[in-house]
Amino acid sequence: MADQLVRSGRKPRADAQRNRERLLEAATQVFNQGEAEASLEAVARQAEVGIGTLYRHFPTREALFEAIYRREVQQLVALAEQLDNEAPVEAVRRWVHAMIGFVAVKKGMSAALAVVAQSSSQLAVCMLEQMVGALDRLLRRAVSAGEMRGDISAEEILRALVGMCYMHDTPDWRRNVLRTADVLIDGLRYAARGPQPAGR
């Protein structure tokens, strides 16, 4: 229902919006635990709302999965805007760490999100464009400040990071990818400054 109100331009009631957010948070937790096939009743129980409330917001599983996907990407876009006052390189690092957390959610919900990707390839492309735009915003600031090299695109970095995330299947994959991402960011920063004379 809230999704229908948003599309129609009408503002959802505050309690309806709160219920929607509770449902999305609960669904993310349930599916992120590897329970992509969990019932919608389980999601409603986690959110402590009735199943009717869930169906009013998300009439199908696909609608719920799509809303989760959109919400996670929107949070990354918003984070890029919030980091405008951070030191440029650290802003890139914080966003990249958050993006890896987003991939962690996707890995836990891989079966569920595969349904979304298959049913709406246009949505997947749109979400990728938004993430590339968010990272590009931060990279441009770092390049303008002379703190990062400018010959690698946001899309190249993003695809490399996603590839690293999916190459690791061990329980501690996230820690390993975060460390590798830090090495990548430091490498971009070092190249921008150039090699330092010995002894400095």
Rank of each mutant, 00 (worst) to 15 (best):
R7E: 13
G9C: 07
G9N: 10
R10N: 12
K11V: 11
K11S: 04
P12W: 12
R13T: 08
A16T: 09
Q17N: 10
R18W: 07
R20Y: 11
R20S: 04
R20A: 02
L24Q: 08
L24H: 00
A26M: 04
A27R: 00
A27S: 02
Q33M: 01
G34S: 02
E35M: 00
E35A: 08
A36P: 12
E37Y: 01
E37R: 01
E37W: 01
E37N: 00
E41Y: 06
A42N: 00
V43S: 06
V43K: 04
R45F: 07
R45P: 13
E48I: 07
I51D: 01
I51S: 03
Y55L: 03
R56W: 12
P59A: 01
P59M: 03
P59V: 05
F65A: 05
F65L: 05
E66M: 03
A67H: 13
R71H: 11
V73W: 11
V73Y: 12
V73D: 00
Q74G: 11
Q74Y: 07
Q75S: 08
Q75G: 11
Q75R: 14
Q82E: 12
L83T: 09
N85T: 14
E86K: 05
E86S: 14
A87V: 05
A87C: 02
A91S: 09
R93F: 06
R94P: 13
R94V: 04
R94N: 10
W95L: 05
V96F: 00
A98P: 01
I100E: 02
I100A: 03
F102E: 11
A104T: 08
K106C: 05
K106H: 04
K107E: 02
G108Q: 00
M109Y: 15
M109E: 11
S110Q: 08
A111L: 14
V115I: 15
V116N: 00
Q118H: 05
A124P: 05
A124M: 09
C126H: 09
C126E: 15
L128M: 14
M131T: 10
V132M: 09
L135M: 07
R137V: 10
R140H: 15
R141Q: 12
S144Y: 06
A145G: 05
G146D: 04
M148S: 06
R149T: 11
I152N: 15
E155R: 08
E155G: 11
I157V: 12
A160E: 13
A160T: 13
A160G: 12
D172Y: 13
W173R: 14
R175A: 07
V177N: 04
V177E: 08
L178I: 07
R179K: 12
T180E: 15
A181G: 03
L184R: 04
L184F: 11
A192F: 00
R193V: 07
G194V: 06
P195V: 14
P195S: 12
P195Y: 10
